[in-house]
């Protein structure tokens, strides 16, 4: 089985589905000849041509609006937004249009579209190449939001997303793009949207993360194990609709919860997760749930490793939560 990094796995998913289904269209800035600034779409232009891999003018609102039109016609567009920090000119088209077509038209129209976009920091990109805007889209009725942490999940989730009849935001953790290699089948396989994965079992504390922070959570789990704390690590994979059952089941076992995300704390997705767990497992909680997140500041350049909720911040949170005595 070939070893792939996340860039290659996403590329493999796109290539697979473009071969399967001629209605799948890739469009965006620089996605054609050069294969995208991260080379995720490399080679697709040569294989499928310029009317299936389209270099668009530089306007995110135009990319998404045009992709919506294609989807309304019956195609399955996969637009790329070069960095998720640049998604905001398209916000209106995503939240007021793509997300609402099915509902507002009484089911006459649907928008089967996957918006791929690199997310997150740690690549020396500064404020405009590092943000994590997922909660803005989770807050919007009608969207699904996916964020794989590794190459294998990325391929399987992207194939599911393209075949899904609802619009999907597909956040690719750019810090992981070339950092991890693993076995990824050449053949097609899917991973269902809406299913989290317990990637490490434990007894004392549950830690929920996704994307690049999953690896930080796993490193912290290893670290606290040396101090006799057994952490259960959940990779959310799909952020919305969230697999709340997997989280609640784990919290019922451990009684303790730590949520990790790069996005700022205020109204970050951790706030919603914490509320849901409190609603559904209040009596099982043995310690105050904790969020380890980006600060409520703009994303900084020089001090980005002090902004991110990395292992050095997750480990003490796990220890404190696991050892908390009311």
């Amino acid at each position: 089985m070939p070893q792939m990094n996340l860039v290659q796995a996403v590329n493999s998913a796109l290539r697979t589905e473009m071969r399967n289904d001629e209605d799948v269209i890739v469009l965006g800035e620089d996605v054609g000849k050069v294969g995208g600034v991260f080379r995720v779409t490399q080679g697709l232009f040569d294989e499928f041509g310029d009317d299936r891999v389209i270099d668009t003018p530089l306007a995110e609102g135009g990319i998404i609006g045009t992709a919506i039109g294609m989807a309304l016609y019956g195609l399955r567009p996969v637009p790329e937004i070069q960095f998720s920090d640049f998604i905001f000119p398209a916000f209106d088209q995503i939240v007021s249009e793509a997300a609402k077509f099915r509902y507002r038209s009484g089911g006459e129209y649907t928008v089967p579209m996957v918006i791929r976009t690199p997310v997150g920091g740690g690549i020396r990109g500064g404020h405009y190449h590092s943000q994590s805007p997922e909660s803005l889209f989770i807050h919007t009725a009608g969207l699904k939001v996916v964020c794989p942490s590794n190459p294998y999940d990325a391929k399987g989730l992207l194939l599911s997303a393209i075949r899904d009849d609802d619009p999907v935001l597909f956040f690719e953790p750019k810090r992981v793009y070339r950092a991890v290699k693993m076995d990824v089948p050449e053949d097609e396989y899917t991973i269902p949207i809406g299913k989290a994965k317990v990637v490490r079992e434990g007894e004392d504390v549950t830690v929920v993360g996704w994307g690049a922070m999953l690896f930080e959570a796993l490193a912290s789990a290893d670290e606290v194990a040396e101090e006799g704390v057994s952490a259960e690590v959940i990779d959310l994979r799909t952020l919305w609709p969230v697999d709340i059952d997997t989280i609640v089941e784990s919290v019922k076992k451990t009684g303790r919860l730590v949520i990790v995300h790069e996005a700022p704390k205020a109204c970050g997705f951790g706030a919603e997760l914490l509320s849901l767990v409190t609603e559904k497992a209040f009596v099982h909680l043995e310690a105050p749930p904790v969020r380890v997140t980006g600060w409520d500041t703009p994303f900084p350049y020089t001090l980005e490793m002090e902004y991110l909720p990395l292992q050095h911040r997750i480990t003490p949170a796990l220890l404190e939560t696991a050892k908390y005595i009311p």
């Binding site: 609006g65 294609m70 195609l75 249009e97």
Partner: peptide, 18 residues
Amino acid sequence: SSPIGTQMTQAVGFGWAA
């Protein structure tokens, strides 16, 4: 939809697809 212009880029994508 109520936003005044969003249908325009959509029409472009739809027409292009057709």
